[in-house]
Design a protein around this nucleic acid. Structure first.
Lengths: 255, 255
DNA sequence: AACAGCATTCGATAATACCGAAAGGAATAG
DNA sequence: CTATTCCTTTCGGTATTATCGAATGCTGTT
């Protein structure tokens, strides 16, 4: 069709992960099934544009500074973040919890904003993407997605047992989605990390489609049932405000 | 030469700024002097790879989620950040100041890490890039760069008067670089933002070249002369530790 | 209802990226 | 110290691929 060069370039960039942040030309070529000469052309083009940077000593390539620049720009101009920043920051500070904003992208939750800058730090890095089925944001989104899409999603992803509390049975998960809809918010008690509890509320856009979710997280002590009764309404309010700004118009009830 | 497709793709991405985060195909074509058909090919390839996202209603393109992912990954695997994270976080908390890590890239300072998550928020966004000549990190780097490179840099950039205190005279700036070398750290009192004071210390790599800098910022009350006398040695210590981890080996004095 | 402006599609052409081989370097083994 | 190996980088011919310009289709406006 069109533009395979660009597609290959993005494939190269997609190889870089937290576990393997440095790649040699020949390994990239092997991973993508391309000739080394071809790969070298792509890689050096990406280097000239600062999408990759080469360590002069080891000849290995790492992600370049231009990506940092573009990533920060995308985050800051992302409409969901722009709408959610003020209310979620306020709630997070006011309630001493960690506030997050995220979307479901390629079957994983991509955290697009977080009030916890710790989480971006190298030491405890798990990546900006987390599974959907066992996180506050993911559950909130899945609970309000069309049923067939949810089933397809659950079939595609691996329901890994992260902690002893993690729900991995599709049937029980769907029951939990129903419960989430009845409550209006998701509840995840130590299913991702043992000492982390989260509540999540979906954000809607035009035509009532879920476009993302917001969440508050903290240690188990902060999420006793009484605390949740206080937190949830505030987060629901915030999410409604964000949804409205995202173009959501609640259906009139008389229809 | 090679790979103009990729180069054009990055040119497209480079058009997106905080001031203009949304582009139409025809405007991109105009800005880059390409045919609209050609531009559409590039843009839709970038969209397929999630480097761009199209608003279905307005048909305008914005930066895509993949860039957020890659940007976060680059930040977290960036070796300077990895080495600086622990000491700068500690210092920042311990002294109630804002800690930053940055490099000089294309004549501007790119902030690669910051303990102030406020600054990434839409409301007060000035971009991850800031001028070098009037910021703590920038001054620290410039002061330790080879003289001819500094002169070339100062000739290329516009020395804008951000506040009434901003030094814009190249001669006085070079005197300040000398003073910075004598002190070992840069001092910037309200030259970028009136109510922000900063001290910056360079980070060295192999062969003694400056590879970046770290800084501490706060409001003017926190940076009285006595306070600086306490802060500076700690930041100098931290920077030396980071430099060592970056491969810097101090020259033996007996040579 | 006609128009204007834009995104998108399409086909022919010419340029460009691809491949495979070879050269150049660096590190390790003999 | 030399030989070997592995990897990066360069090079040229070929075929694929991106490009351009025009045509089509869509949307919102006059």
């Amino acid at each position: 069709m069109s533009q395979q060069s660009i597609h290959r370039a993005t494939q190269v960039l997609g190889l870089f992960t937290f576990e393997k942040p440095s790649w040699r030309v020949s390994d990239i070529a092997k991973a993508l099934g391309l000739a080394v000469g071809t790969t070298h052309g792509i890689v050096s083009a990406l280097e000239r544009c600062e999408f990759l940077a080469q360590d002069p000593a080891s000849k290995e390539y790492k992600l370049g500074l231009k990506l940092l620049e573009l990533g920060a720009l995308q985050s800051v101009t992302f409409s969901l973040n722009r709408k959610a920043a003020t209310p979620i920051n306020y709630l997070s500070r006011h309630t001493s919890t960690i506030g997050r904003v995220g979307v479901l992208n390629n079957d994983v939750v991509l955290t697009t904003m977080s009030t916890d800058h710790q989480e971006w730090h190298p030491s405890s890095y798990i990546g900006p993407t987390v599974p959907a089925f066992c996180t506050g944001i993911g559950r909130a989104i899945l609970a309000y997605m069309p049923g067939e899409e949810v089933i397809a999603h659950l079939a595609r992803v691996k329901l890994h047992q992260y902690t002893s509390k993690t729900l991995t049975d599709p049937v029980r998960l769907r029951a939990e989605f129903t419960a989430t809809r009845e409550r209006g918010y998701s509840l995840v008690y130590g299913e991702t990390l043992v000492h982390l509890d989260t509540i999540g509320v979906p954000v809607f856009g035009p035509e009532g489609r879920v476009v993302g979710a917001v969440s508050l997280s903290g240690n188990p002590g902060q999420f006793a049932s009484g605390d949740v009764a206080e937190l949830a309404p505030q987060l629901l309010d915030a999410a409604m405000e964000i949804s409205t700004h995202m173009g959501y118009r609640p259906q009139p009830h008389f229809l």
